[in-house]
Structures are given as C-alpha cells and as structure tokens.
C-alpha cells in the first residue's frame, strides 16, 4: 500500500504555543503513520504534546510546520472549510461524553448523520437506532443523556462517533471519567466496532488497563515520539 493510501501520515510535524520569547514548542518533528484498521495508543506524561497532536490530526487546529495527511487530505495550509469537511470524516470521542443534553440518545447519534445530505429523517433515526443497538443501548434510544449512567453516555458517544462512517477515530482518554469496568467495556466496544468496519483508531490514554487493546503503542515525551518498550503490538492472550 502506498503511503498516500494510509489514513494518517505525519512527517516532521512541529507545533509551538506563544510568540517570541514566550514561544514554547510542544511538538518537535513528529513522524507517525497509522495503517488502515490499526489501533494505535498514544501514551506519555502530561505536557508531552499528545493532545496537541490529536487536535492537529483532528483538524481542530491550524498546522504550523510539517506535513499531516489525514484520510488523503493534506492539512498543512488547508483552509477552514477544508478542515470542516475533513472533520466530518473523523469520529471524535472525548474525555467527557459531550452529548447534547436537550436531545435524546438517538437524536444525539443522528446529529452525526445530519451532516451528510441524501437521507431522510426516518432513515437517519433508523440508522441511529441501529448504531445504539450495536453499542448495546438499543432500548435506551429515547432516554435523555442525564438519565443514562456515565458508561452508557460514553457508549452513546461511541455510537455517535461511528455513525457517520468515519475513516479514522480519534479518542482522548475516553475512559478517564469512567470506572474500571465501564471504561473497559466502552473501549472494547469501540475496538470491536472499529475492527468490523476496518477503521483505524488513534487513542490517547493514561489508562494502563486498556493498553492490551492496542495493535501498537506509541509513547511521547517532550514533544517527541520516543521508542517505548511496549512499542510492539501487544499480543497477550
């Protein structure tokens, strides 16, 4: 497979906050590739630049230096409109569920489908219902987010991230706000659904309990990707 066909290719990406003397580099010449269907965990201490990297890849931030190709779209010099377009093809999962409190679970999932024209309301809601069933919440479609437990909300967020048939999933510590059991369930669900669809996942985490899910673990320190002892696919049985 050529490099162009990879969902994610970073070459020499650097990023700094601030100007002049206050300039503080957070990313230094990061190279990274994610292959189709691969599940990559990004770990490292706070301040190592993981989150900044994720926001760059997610087209939430303008690039400064280097090249970042996400799903075939070069982000260096991309316009705001191009970045908005790209975000529609990426599924985001946040630390908090960030569901819209005034919509039901099903309507929240359907929000990911309303971005693409060509489907009627009935189809969108049916598809959202199927996504909720896939995360095991088929019977909670009409619940408001505040009637759901933390784990259920995060599962709705997973359904929402996957509903738009994204080419890449970015997750930022999706288990941080959850207890051990529900956190593990959510991430396994995410992995299984992504595998079925052949979608790559880039997941930032501090949580050692979910390291075994990864095809590959990348450690970051001080804005650089460092060789990590677990950088090989974990294959414990």
């Amino acid at each position: 497979m050529t490099e162009a066909a990879l969902p994610l290719v970073l070459r020499g990406v650097s990023y700094a906050f601030g100007e002049g003397e206050l300039r503080r580099p957070v990313l230094r010449a990061v190279d990274l590739e994610v292959r189709p269907g691969e599940i990559v965990l990004l770990t490292g201490p706070s301040g190592s630049g993981k989150t900044t990297l994720l926001t760059l890849i997610g087209a939430l931030r303008a690039m400064q230096e280097g090249s970042c190709r996400v799903l075939g779209q070069e982000l260096a010099g991309a316009s705001e409109a191009q970045r908005v377009q790209l975000r529609r093809r990426i599924g985001f999962i946040f630390q908090q569920h960030n569901l819209l409190g005034f919509l039901t679970a099903r309507q929240n999932v359907a929000m990911a489908l309303e971005l693409a024209p060509g489907r009627g309301e009935r189809e969108r809601l049916a598809e959202a219902g199927r996504m909720l069933a896939a995360v095991g919440l088929g019977d909670r479609g009409e619940s408001m987010p505040d009637q759901l437990s933390g784990g259920q909300r995060q599962r709705v967020a997973v359904a929402r991230a996957l509903a738009g048939r994204p080419g890449l999933i970015l997750a930022d510590e999706p288990t941080a706000a959850l207890d051990r059991q529900s956190g593990g369930e959510v991430v396994r669900l995410l992995r299984d659904l992504a595998r079925q669809r052949g979608v790559a996942i880039l997941l930032v985490t501090h949580d050692p309990r979910i390291l075994d899910l990864a095809d590959r673990i990348i450690a970051m320190e001080d804005g650089r990707v460092v060789p990590a002892p677990q950088a090989d696919p974990v294959r414990t049985g």
């Binding site: 908005v84 790209l86 985001f92 946040f94 960030n98 569901l99 819209l100 738009g164």
Partner: peptide, 9 residues
C-alpha cells in the same frame, strides 16, 4: 456541546 458539534464537522 457547541464545540463538540464543531469538532464533528
């Protein structure tokens, strides 16, 4: 929530 919507595209 608005920021989430923006992140979704």
């Amino acid at each position: 929530e608005y920021a989430t919507l923006k992140a979704m595209g």
